[in-house]
Design a protein around this nucleic acid. Structure first.
Lengths: 148, 148
DNA sequence: TATTGTTATACTCTATAACTATA
DNA sequence: TATAGTTATAGAGTATAACAATA
């Protein structure tokens, strides 16, 4: 058995990780320094901002986040008054999560910033390539399987 | 200001992170359970396996890894006899890193496994799309800027 | 003084088990 | 018994400062 001739920068898991890290860096700095948020926190905030109120369980499903991560993120967002919980009458195990006006405002700022960072990211790439990129990543991530 | 109409599963940093995580999961389990390696360790191993001996500094540049990560990964790989260091005569600050036969063999097994996982990953995708995916990710990651 | 590499430390992220309260 | 959510804990990943040895 001779040299396997493996070319590392063609290996998709590696390439995806490096691209993800590079692509997320600026946005990460933004939500961290501006709002003191962690990754799981902005993800939960965005789910509520994009899709409206829902249970923690639903956030887990949509975001592919484990319930322990969501639990802590929800607690942190509540502490910072971004989010409110409301007891459900029908099933008291479930709490309906929704953004406060402050949370909504923060979501609007963050999503605008996200849109700017993304525009910067795809700047110079043909729209057709970006469209294809999204569709391939959607399949690979499994995010295309989650119903909204 | 009304609803920002931000669609989270279209946000590339998010999409890239989810895809990267999903794509890396199987390979990660493989090198961890089989060789007890961590992420930085297989990356260093692959750089030496793919490109031959080089200094730690060169690994840092090519892999976009901070010198502290490389330093610890090299120490771990040396402890496990995957890698050997050799002092440079010209400049005694620099050590040339290379794989031992055991390290080489491990690299061959891991790179073959990597190729299998990747084949599984792109299975069902048109080769043209995969090619484009790679080229876009290469640009986004900045990996296209590193000379080999 | 600058560079290569090491050690220390703090924080974030991931994963899992054990638990409470409700159904 | 099963489900929604919480708490505890360990290990892996990231980031930075301070350091030693050499140039």
């Amino acid at each position: 058995m001779s040299a396997p001739n493996f070319h590392l920068p063609h290996f998709l898991p590696y390439l995806l990780n490096q691209a993800a890290e590079a692509a997320s860096h600026e946005f990460q700095a933004y939500y961290r320094t501006r709002y003191g948020m962690l990754r799981a926190e902005w993800r939960v905030l965005f789910h509520l901002g994009c899709y409206g109120e829902m249970s923690a369980k639903r956030v887990c499903e949509l975001a592919s986040l484990h319930k322990t991560k969501v639990s802590r993120a929800v607690a942190a967002l509540e502490r910072k008054r971004f989010l409110a919980r409301e007891e459900t009458e029908a099933d008291r195990r479930i709490e309906t999560l929704s953004l406060t006006p402050h949370g909504q405002q923060t979501f609007e700022d963050l999503s605008a910033a996200a849109a700017r960072f993304e525009a910067e990211l795809v700047q110079g790439l043909p729209p057709e390539e970006v469209k294809l990129l999204r569709s391939v990543l959607l399949k690979m991530s499994g995010l295309d399987q989650k119903r909204i």
